[in-house]
Amino acid sequence: MISVHAELPLQSFVLQLELQMEGSTIALLGHSGAGKTSLLELIAGLRRTAKGRICLDGDVLQDTETGRFLAPERRRIGYVPQEGLLFPHLDVEQNLRFGAASGDGAKQRLEEITQILAIGALLRRYPASLSGGEKQRVALGRALATSPRLLLLDEPLAAMDHELKERVLPYLLRVREAWNIPMVYVTHHLEEAKALADEVVLIEHGRVIQHGGAAQVLGPAIRSLLDSGGSLENLLDGRLEGSALRVGSGMKVWVPASQSAGERAVFTVRPEDVLVSLRAPEDLSARNALPGEVVAIHEIGPDVVLRIDVDGFEWLSKLTRVAAQQLGVTPGVRVFVVVKTHSFRRLS
């Protein structure tokens, strides 16, 4: 459990946080410049001038009243900054080893990290020659090598550009599976937050404006989240069965053929690539036609975004306002979600 009661003057406003986070994976959302990075730095111990009290699992990290301030090097909190911030004078392996303990256990852990984050081929390279996504993965590995009790992760805004290789999500899923370290992470992908996090905190102008379970915060807040720079997509995390993907909720979709059966895979589909039909489509080339029910309609500019429930999975479909009116979709209407196999794009 992380509790933050802190005040920190920033350039244009004062960060004022009263926050009790209990989840094992917490997503932080909000405008860039809303104070998300400052919150991470506060927890990491890099903002000594902050006033207030910060605790992690009953351990007081900082308390202005008693004058306690635990130095960052003694907090055992891994921090992965937005830019990665690898040490430019060290190669990837030296970066990974920088904070690692010595000994056999540590060596084995480094090997595991290298394998899980798929950075084995980069070990001899220097940070200047790495792509943004590679830097982020190495920075994640460098933090993991110190065996932290909490991981703080700042997703780069650059990952918003639809560069699938740059996305860190698939690796975070693997990291969570392998070590089960609690994490707080800043993301701009709403569906990513929904897929990974069990708790979501929405921050604006240095204050918490919404806080709760992922579905509870993200559903109703789509509009304001999009306004604050979030990115919308359908994110399917499941296991491959031949050329189908079985999602956690049991839903099965056809995805582009792959060799790796049984493997965990994450796919994205843009909401504008999700069609809606009132009747079961016949003689259509698209292979995915899934019956569901419209849960909500959000008006966003000239478009609407439909949230459609299919066996517990919520699809997002983006239509023009005119198309939605002609179709006559309202909450409660039963529809078919239609997606071409090739609209699925695999992450990593």
Partner: peptide, 15 residues
């Protein structure tokens, strides 16, 4: 030298 690099080094357990 980017001071944030020095910050990150601290979080990695260095004095």
């Amino acid at each position: 030298v980017n001071p944030r690099l020095l910050d990150v080094a601290r979080t990695l357990g260095k004095t």
